[in-house]
Design a protein around this nucleic acid. Structure first.
Lengths: 152, 152
DNA sequence: CCGAAATTTCAGAAATTACTGAAGAGTCGG
DNA sequence: CCGACTCTTCAGTAATTTCTGAAATTTCGG
């Protein structure tokens, strides 16, 4: 039930799901390593070995995960290698970053509304779209607040 | 302010945003046409002309939009061509379809938890992940309910 | 400061994904 | 039913994305 092989299968499957969710392939696999490792932190070299991937692609993946805030660089524990680990609020962060798309949709709707006459059917459709994404965006803060309350 | 060219620029920009959100390129551009057209319904041929794309790629895009429920085929008005239009609840549908990823994440977390001992740090991380996505999934029904109440 | 170990960068290769064009299937008017 | 018109399917191609490998850079121990 807890053999390494089974864990590894689960990790690869999760990586595929993360890819569905918009992460790049190698970034997703790297994130899976951060999740499933039995150590408190990992180095780029360990990830490369684990995934049988080149140091270069791992470097790129780590960079992108750092950028979106899913992992963090640890204060060097005297070693030459950089240590990284999954951030505590990684999932909420991932969720939030995906919501930037919502803002973009909202702005696109605004632009479309401005470019159409109110008599144009397109105007109506864009207004509906705008209403939905505005609603959605408004719900997110309280949603995250409820989460933080519940998890603390 | 309401010239066709400006509208078209807005449509192309929205298509790009939709692509960010996970739609395929041509499906996104097709959806933009459904939004910005000044007619109540459009045919595949009109879309192909508008996008300067092949009939084949438009056919594929329409098929995928039908599958996720963003557009609908209209009862044929006596013409030989099929007419399609954006569905009323398209945006809520799009939102919901994106949430299938959340369910997949949840299941991935469950699988990981089952594959690790509780003493393993990975077990803790997976439990946190599970908690977040379970929370998220639980919030969605009431969220959509509030939307339907507000929009009606 | 120098050398070793690790990471980052980047050009090229590989793989994946998306589009086209043509052939085939379906459908409606006559 | 036949013929014309439209849509769909699919194999091949084009384009994009992603990975690798090697060189350059950074960092730390000595």
């Amino acid at each position: 039930m807890n053999d390494r092989h089974e864990q590894w299968r689960a990790a690869e499957r999760l990586a595929l799901t993360l890819t569905e969710g918009g992460l790049q392939r190698m970034a997703a696999r790297t994130l899976a390593v951060f999740l499933f490792t039995d150590q408190p932190s990992v180095t780029a070299g360990e990830i490369a070995m684990r995934l049988e991937a080149s140091a270069g692609s791992v470097s790129g993946a780590i960079k992108s995960l750092l950028t979106v805030g899913l992992i963090e660089r640890l204060p060097a524990p005297g070693s030459r290698r950089e240590h990284y680990r999954l951030r505590d609020d990684a999932w909420a962060t991932l969720f939030t970053s995906q919501n930037t798309v919502i803002q973009a949709m909202l702005q696109a709707a605004v632009a479309g509304i401005a470019a159409t006459e109110s008599s144009d059917p397109a105007h109506q459709r864009l207004a509906q779209m705008h209403a939905f994404y505005e609603f959605l965006l408004g719900e997110i803060p309280s949603l995250l607040e409820r989460w933080h309350q519940q998890s603390s």
